[in-house]
Each structure stands twice: as C-alpha cells, then as structure tokens.
Amino acid sequence: MVKAKKKPFEEIKQAIEGYTRVLNIGCGGCVSVCLAGGQKEVNLLNLQLNAAFSGENKATRVDSFTVERQCNEMFLIDLDKVVPRYDGLMSMACGAGVQLIAERYPDKPIFPAVNTIAVGVDRQIGIYEERCRACGECVLGYTGGICPITRCAKGLFNGPCGGTNKGICEIGNEIPCAWQDIYERLKEQNRVDDILKIKTAMQWQNQTRRMIVQDEYAGRYEDKK
C-alpha cells in the first residue's frame, strides 16, 4: 500500500497559521495502516497544534474529520456539509487524497500534513519498506521479482554499473546491489537468459530504497538497525 510519513511539526504549523479555522482531514485507508494519517494521528496532531497555537495566542484552531478513503469521492460526501465552515483545509492522506479534496473544494486552500513516500510493504508495526515506484511498466517478470527501479540507486535496466562491489552498491551504507541480487535469483531459477535481452533504459534520478519508520516506533527498532 501507499506509505507516508508525517511532516515535521513546525512545517505543518507554519503552513496553516495564517488561517483561523482549519479542518484536518484524516484517511482510513493506507495512511491509517502505516500509522501516519488515520483518525488517531489526526486527533493527536490536532491536540498538539491547538496547544501550540493557544500557547502563542494565535487564533488558529484545528478540527478533525476522518473519512474512510480520501481517494474515492463516495467517501467524501459527508465532508460537503462540514468544509464550508473552514477557511483552510489540511489532509493527512497521500498525495492522491490531498488532490481529490483540492479538486472537490477548489476555493479552499489545502495543505498536506504528511509526505507520501512510496508503495511499500509492512515489515513491522511502524516500520515500512519501499518496494515499487509505480513506474507503470513493471519489469519484475524478467528481474526475478526484484525491482531495479526501486532497489538500484541508478535505476538501471540492463545489469549493474561498474560500481558494484562484492554484492554492495558503490553509494555505500552497505546497500546491496540490486543487480547482483537479480542475477543470483535468476541463476537459482535457471533464468539468467532473461537479463541478456537489452531493455531500453528509463530516465530516473538516483534514488535508493527508503525506509519509513514512524517516529513513535523509532526507539524500539534502534538496536536492531
């Protein structure tokens, strides 16, 4: 599912402090699963924001409303009655959800409270791993189920670059070389031929797989890193 992480508190606060009544809209879908923007996170963030604003004698106040899924209009109907009471909106859904809300209420300024990170898998509660960049041309079928776009720092399509070193990527941090892994897996399956065919390269920026660790759970996993 889509994985997201809450923006830094100060960034959120600054974005909305010019508004008096702000509605923070949570999503019961993916961001609820990855503990970034469900009802619980909305309530907690609002508590913190309202305390901060009242402590600074600012007029801004934030209310909550969580819908089942912000990416589906059928779940937005009940918002129609609520939204007119606010001069600013905030969304804790992924970028898709934020945009659907923006589209539905074009006269209301909207601010995302989370950063949408990736399509990923659940490793543990509060810890998630990027697995797909939704490139729209999935190549997993010939790469042994290992995504070269997500896993290779250069998003290479036709084997490793010259920087691969005993199975480790040259960018460091002991990041495994995606293409080494692809090769090993295909070899095990007797399918190395699959990567001998030349694939036209895509233009991607250097990116390595990101881990999304929710702050609340970071301490718990520190030792294991």
């Binding site: 609820s32 503990l35 969580t66 089942e68 059928m74 009940d78 509660i125 509060g126």
Partner: peptide, 25 residues
C-alpha cells in the same frame, strides 16, 4: 451496501470508536 457500512463507520468515528492498525499487535 458499502455506503451503509461507511455510514456506520462514520458514526463510530464520531464517537471516537475506530480501528487502528497498531492494536493488532
């Protein structure tokens, strides 16, 4: 039917009764 179920969820949410994914743990 989903609309009806979503409505029941809304009502639960309005009373702060909802499901969170860390409660599974």
């Amino acid at each position: 039917i989903p609309e009806m179920i979503a409505l029941a969820r809304n009502i639960c949410r309005s009373q702060d009764v909802y499901f969170t994914w860390d409660q599974l743990e």
